[in-house]
């Protein structure tokens, strides 16, 4: 029983980080209508900035965290400006291939700069354990949960209540009509990317605080699974991303600890099996809206 609860907590931890990353995917996908393949790799870059700022340069932790988020947001801005913006009116296939190119570029830049070896990160957020219903829960876990929930609520209110947020909603509904209403569509999409990348920055901090290591391929697999979570919950839906993230995290933790050892090598495969089953049965996800195609 004790072990089962530990596994559940592990799954919720993992799921919260997935949920945070899935939020980034769902926002960009919902508004810009493109799959930002590089989102996961921005998390990887964020984790490397933590390595550089905290382990190598020993900058104070809060400053390093702010710098990390700022760097990720800047990276998102630059990538959007150089690679995605010129393709606003291109076919989805071209945009997708460009995004894959950007993801591959970030991965290989990290590979060239830091090498294939896994970089270890010092434990930079150190809080004691909490006692929750007789089970000891690490402080990091609590921080991850609280951050994820706060960010989710914040994002939700931002999109529903502020002018910019509502402009984003309008762009996601109908670009042409939004433009006629005086919304600067191009700028709105760019801002979406910056916010999405800043979210990736936050996720990278939580990821490195929890797992304490990073390699150039950290982001891609993690990103794909988070995308699976976004699809699972229904792309474009913020609560959906949360539910999807938690479910994928739980499934992964449970399969990893309860499957026999010889099947463990395939535990990554199971997340993908679930993704395919979900897409086959209900392509719009749990909370997604149905999209009708117009000629």
């Amino acid at each position: 029983m004790q072990q089962f609860i530990m596994t559940l907590i592990d799954g919720i931890n993992l799921g919260s980080v997935y949920a945070l990353v899935a939020l980034g995917y769902t926002m960009v996908y919902g508004i810009a209508k493109m799959l930002n393949f590089a989102h996961g790799d921005i998390i990887m870059v964020g984790a490397y900035t933590i390595v550089v700022f905290i382990t190598r340069l020993s900058i104070s932790v809060p400053l390093a965290m702010i710098l990390c988020v700022a760097f990720c947001a800047l990276l998102g801005f630059v990538v959007e400006k150089l690679a995605y913006k010129p393709l606003r009116h291109a076919t989805p296939l071209s945009v997708l291939i460009t995004a894959i190119g950007v993801s591959y570029l970030l991965q290989n830049l990290a590979l060239l700069i830091f090498g294939t070896n896994r970089q270890f990160i010092v434990r930079f957020i150190d809080v004691g354990n909490f006692n929750l219903f007789g089970v000891s829960v690490s402080g990091i876990s609590v921080i991850i949960w609280v951050t994820t929930i706060v960010i989710m609520i914040g994002l939700y209110t931002f999109i529903k209540k502020t002018k910019l947020g509502r402009a984003m909603l309008a762009v996601s509904e109908d670009k042409g009509a939004a433009q006629l209403m005086g919304i600067n569509v191009n700028r709105t999409i760019s801002i979406t990317f910056v916010i999405g990348s800043a979210l990736a920055g936050v996720a990278s901090i939580l990821y490195s605080a929890k797992y304490l290591n990073v390699d150039p391929y950290t982001g891609s697999l993690f990103g794909i699974k988070a995308f699976a979570a976004a699809v699972f919950g229904g792309i474009g839906s913020i609560p959906g991303a949360m539910i999807g993230g938690l479910l994928i995290g739980l499934i992964e933790a449970l399969t990893a600890s309860y499957l026999p050892f010889n099947l463990n090598a395939a535990s990554d495969g199971f997340a993908f099996v679930i993704l395919i089953i979900m897409l086959v049965l209900k392509p719009t996800g749990l909370l997604g809206k149905k999209n009708t195609e117009k000629v």
């Binding site: 989805p92 699976a228 495969g269 993908f272 395919i276 086959v280």
Partner: peptide
Amino acid sequence: RLQGDYLAIVTLAFGEIIRSFIKI
């Protein structure tokens, strides 16, 4: 029923599944 980005992700997932199962 899928096309575009979703189809691409499914093919990616499929490739990874094949590799995972070859491993076990």
